[in-house]
Amino acid sequence: MKWETDSKVLIQGITNPLGVSYATRMKAQGTNIVAGITLDEQTSDTHDIPVFTLVEEAVKQVGPIDISLILTAPYEVLDAGLEAISAGIKQLVIVTSWVPPLDLITLLQQAEVTNTFVLGSGSEGLLVPDKFWLGIMEPTFYSHGPVGIISRCDRLMDELAKTLTKRDLGQSLAVSLGSDRVMGSNFEQWLQIMEEDDTTKAIVFLGQPYSSPELLAAQYIDSAIEKPVVAYLPGIQAPINRSFGDATSIIVSQLSYQTRPTTGDDQTLTALRKAGVKIAKNFEEIPRLIQGIFPRKPRKSRTSTR
């Protein structure tokens, strides 16, 4: 995986509302957007970004592309992803939510065959403060520092970054896995990335309650992660025996993996405690737990003027 300032980025769905808005902002922040793809008949350049109708055509014009940011409609994601893979793009970031689960499974199968990295669907993207921004998070909330964030919660990552930044707890890397039930890259992959990253000194894990990926992540932390981890699972304090998510989420979960019944003695919390993870009971407790990881800076002594 490569996410550097010079990484060449393609936006599929650049003429969609999200594409028009965020392409301009990412380019202004220094993201190297080299081309865009649209299904519209008109392919005029957008904010000095050349626009094409085919990924293959874009690659011929601008050369090899590192990453495709997919902002198409949900039912167009499979075709967009397969087209990007066919053109030799090895990293896909799928911002689009509610991708048909069977479409995403088909795409992930092809990605596995071609060794293509997939983030999402439903991902806000990833960000290295002051270096690289790709997605729809709010970059002004983030600042450079030692805290890595891995999130599977809509927009909560932005709020956490803003809160940490106000307390002088900057971030080394922030990544959104996506809130959809079927995921590309998982917690374990990003936990290992942050474990090996010298700039990351602590990790914040934002997950969903009563969910299999979070349980697997807790088990992985116990076996492979030595850096301190703080976890927050919004909704874990809600009454037990309640099914989270709307009808679509429930159907998708049945297609992707078996949902465990909710019980008072949640397996994920048990596994997190076993792994030595600090568990925040509410959002406001997260910064306090992180501050407890880092030694306090000594106060400057006041020099007497007498």
Rank of each mutant, 00 (worst) to 15 (best):
S176D: 03
S176K: 01
L177W: 02
L177G: 02
L177Q: 00
S179N: 13
D180P: 04
R181V: 15
V182P: 02
G184A: 00
N186H: 11
N186K: 13
F187Q: 10
F187C: 06
Q189D: 13
Q189I: 11
W190N: 11
W190E: 07
L191R: 05
Q192E: 15
M194V: 12
M194I: 11
E196C: 03
D197K: 10
D198F: 12
T199R: 15
T199D: 15
T200W: 12
T200Q: 11
A202L: 09
A202M: 09
I203S: 10
I203N: 08
V204M: 00
F205R: 01
G207L: 12
G207H: 11
Q208T: 13
Q208A: 14
Q208S: 14
Q208F: 07
P209N: 08
P209Y: 08
Y210Q: 08
S211P: 02
S212F: 12
S212D: 14
P213S: 12
P213V: 14
E214Y: 14
E214S: 15
L215Q: 15
L216P: 06
L216M: 15
A217N: 10
A218L: 05
A218G: 05
A218V: 06
A218Y: 08
Q219D: 14
Y220P: 09
Y220C: 08
I221Q: 05
S223W: 05
S223I: 09
A224W: 04
I225P: 06
I225G: 06
E226A: 12
K227D: 07
P228N: 03
P228G: 04
V229C: 02
V229M: 01
Y232P: 01
Y232I: 02
L233H: 04
L233E: 03
P234A: 08
P234I: 05
G235H: 08
G235F: 08
I236G: 00
Q237R: 05
A238T: 08
I240R: 08
I240S: 09
I240F: 09
N241W: 02
S243P: 00
S243K: 04
D246V: 03
A247M: 09
A247H: 09
A247W: 05
T248E: 11
T248A: 13
T248N: 07
I250D: 07
I251V: 14
V252F: 09
Q254H: 13
Q254E: 08
L255W: 06
S256Q: 11
Q258W: 07
Q258A: 14
P261M: 00
P261F: 02
T262C: 05
T263K: 12
T263M: 06
T263E: 09
D265T: 12
D266T: 07
D266S: 10
D266M: 04
D266N: 13
D266L: 07
D266G: 05
T270R: 13
L272I: 03
R273H: 07
K274I: 00
K274A: 10
K274L: 01
K274R: 09
G276E: 00
G276T: 01
V277P: 03
V277M: 07
V277W: 04
I279D: 06
I279R: 04
A280M: 06
A280L: 10
K281L: 14
